[in-house]
Amino acid sequence: MDAPDEIVHQTLRLKILAALRAAPEGARLEFTRLKKITGATDGNLGRQITRLAEAGYIDIAKDFHKNRPRTRARLTPLGASAFDNHVAYLKSVIEGL
């Protein structure tokens, strides 16, 4: 891979995908948990999650839990592959120096 994935490359989106990649396979992470992990604001996190979902890299589920709205995300196979390729690209950049 000789070019970065422009969707994955953005710092917050990269952190979101990294967190979802570390979660057990198929497990969903809640919006509030992603917020704590990435340190992002609600607005920015919401925007980047939507962007990743539009690209098909994550799958979002919205429901009610204990009478409160809940948003959860999980990585799709396409997202997992894009993330892994991007990590390989980053390593190749470092090795190529």
Binding site: T11, L14, A18, A22, A23
Partner: peptide
């Protein structure tokens, strides 16, 4: 600069994954 950016990105990934595992 590209290598420095890549190193920073890998550190961000490691930190995010560390936090995810700790929370789990």
């Amino acid at each position: 600069d590209a290598a420095l950016d890549a190193k920073r990105a890998l550190k961000d990934i490691e930190a995010a994954q560390g936090r995810t595992n700790a929370f789990a």
